[in-house]
């Protein structure tokens, strides 16, 4: 009897020792993972700054950011990226707004009103579409969307002598395509945030005599707003970082962003010229990269701050 107790005590402490070992082992594993992620981000940031600043110094920050001409191979080269910056801002803002709006409404319909079958089918489709490589979107956009937008353009500007026809490859096409690309994620995130709204809120509203639509718009969407903003952050990331599909439908000419202008985004600016650039031109492309990096970082921080504030309001 006594022996048994002693032995079991011995086992216990051995088990405990092994638990302690695993605990600290896992602790170091997680720390290492976390640290290497931080190190990678810092490394990339440092490299972007190092590679991006020389050209900016040479061109001058003012001329670089606010110059409206991008003629890197002209006898008198000009390196102004303002049109590209504005294009990226306009294209991203348009497509994120449109897709969050449409995506949230779609999610409300699917979660609150649609029959089960339809919801499941739509969710599977959204998951599939979110995973499609962007080249596929680019191909579909170039063969279906661009000709359609081109027709609209022809109808709108018929007889105009000042309009430079784009054949449909313009900011409008790019924004529509980006919207479609972000939409599946917006629908998914919208659905997740709606489902995360406590059941009590939905029931409380219905029990007061509200119908499902009133409940969705007056209670569920406000309660799901932090999640919806997070979806906007994700969408912004994808929209700003997208190059391939956009290049196939935007016309790729450096112009100020108007719907029926051919335009070039910051990302496509780098991709287009990386192959043949040299010297200051090449260094300037790295500066574009730096501008993109800083801008994505800033947007993320701002949107995160928004989410934080929303979250604070929720739990307060």
């Amino acid at each position: 009897m006594v022996k048994n107790i002693l032995r079991s005590r011995g086992n216990l402490s051995r088990a405990e020792r092994s638990r302690k070992f695993w605990d600290s082992f896992m602790y170091w594993c997680f720390s290492l993972c976390g640290l290497s992620a931080i190190a990678a981000v810092c490394g990339i940031a440092a490299y972007m700054v190092l590679a991006g600043t020389p050209a900016i110094n040479e061109i001058g920050l003012f001329h670089f950011l606010l110059g409206s001409r991008w003629e890197p191979t002209a006898p008198q080269p000009a390196f102004g990226v303002l049109p590209m910056i504005l294009t990226s801002v306009a294209g991203t803002a348009l497509s994120v707004l449109a897709s969050v709006l449409v995506g949230t409404l779609t999610a409300v319909f699917l979660e609150e009103l649609a029959p089960n079958r339809l919801r499941q089918a739509a969710q599977a489709t959204a998951a599939l579409m979110a995973g499609l490589p962007s080249v596929v979107y680019g191909l579909v956009g170039a063969t279906l969307l661009v000709p359609l937008v081109g027709k609209a353009e022809n109808a709108l500007f018929r007889g105009s002598s000042s309009h430079i026809f784009t054949g449909g490859a313009n900011l409008l096409s790019a924004s529509i395509l980006l919207t479609v690309m972000i939409l599946p994620t917006a629908i998914q995130v919208g659905g997740i945030s709606l489902r995360a709204v406590p059941r009590e809120l939905r029931e409380a509203s219905l029990a007061l005599g509200a119908d499902r639509t009133e409940t969705a718009f007056k209670v569920l969407i406000p309660a799901a707003r932090p999640g919806i903003v997070t979806g906007a952050v994700l969408g912004t990331g994808r929209a700003m970082g997208e190059a391939m599909a956009v290049m196939m439908v935007s016309g790729n000419a450096v112009n100020f962003p108007l719907p029926f202008h051919s335009v070039r985004f910051l990302t496509t600016g780098i991709v287009t010229e990386m192959g043949y650039s040299s010297g200051l031109h090449r260094k300037a492309l790295f500066s574009i990269g730096l501008a993109l990096f800083v801008w994505i970082l800033a947007t993320d921080l701002i949107l995160e701050a928004l989410v934080q504030r929303e979250g604070g309001g929720q739990s307060a």
Partner: peptide
Amino acid sequence: GMVFQKPSPFP
């Protein structure tokens, strides 16, 4: 009308 177990004020 109905009151639930968990207090559920709207946000």
